[in-house]
């Protein structure tokens, strides 16, 4: 095994699995260079445990935090109120327009379906070009031409 110097900190922190740990201990038992490095790290860790406590926060730390929290909550309420007002002023008319458009589309669709049912029930009328012309339901020239030649289609003529 090469010198496991990169694993020594994890070894000292107890972060290796048993097999890795046994391997490092076996190496340390016969490698003076790694023993020296381990001792250097152990000394550093011992010194780190003697660090002074971090400076205490100021006496007004909590008070200032709750003041900031209150301000933030008030701003959030104000933002929500503004968004509600914007929604009613601008979005509501838009939504009403969309609803009206949908209603028109649905009504047109229903009316178109009713026309199609009427045509299906009275298809015999379309055999007479004169009747179709008088009903004023076919307005495009190509449709008029088709109706005019319906009898030819029935007889299978080209």
């Amino acid at each position: 095994m090469s010198h496991p110097v990169n694993e020594l900190t994890a070894y000292l922190d107890g972060a290796l699995d048993p097999a890795e740990r046994a391997e490092i201990e076996s190496h340390l038992a016969r490698c003076e260079a790694c023993q020296a490095e381990r001792d250097r790290l152990v000394a550093a860790l011992a010194l780190l445990s003697r660090l002074p406590p971090a400076p205490a926060p100021s006496a007004t730390f909590e008070q200032r935090f709750y003041a900031r929290l209150a301000t933030e909550k008030a701003e959030a309420r104000e933002r929500r109120g503004f968004l509600d007002r914007v929604a009613w002023r601008w979005l509501a008319p838009g939504l009403a327009g969309v609803a009206a458009s949908v209603a028109v589309v649905l009504y047109s669709g229903a009316r178109q379906r009713a026309d199609e049912v009427f045509l299906a029930e009275h298809i015999d009328l379309f055999e007479s070009y004169e009747a179709v012309a008088s009903m004023d339901v076919v307005d495009r020239p190509e449709d008029v031409q088709v109706v005019e030649h319906l009898d030819e289609l029935r007889e299978g003529r080209p």
């Binding site: 990169n6 900190t9 994890a10 250097r40 790290l41 000394a43 550093a44 860790l45 010194l47």
Partner: peptide, 20 residues
């Protein structure tokens, strides 16, 4: 994390060597 902590600890060992 092992690598980050190790490199930082080696740096700490060097920085704290005068006190060790």
């Amino acid at each position: 994390v092992k690598s980050l902590v190790h490199r930082a600890t080696v740096a700490a060992a060097a920085a704290l060597a005068p006190y060790a």
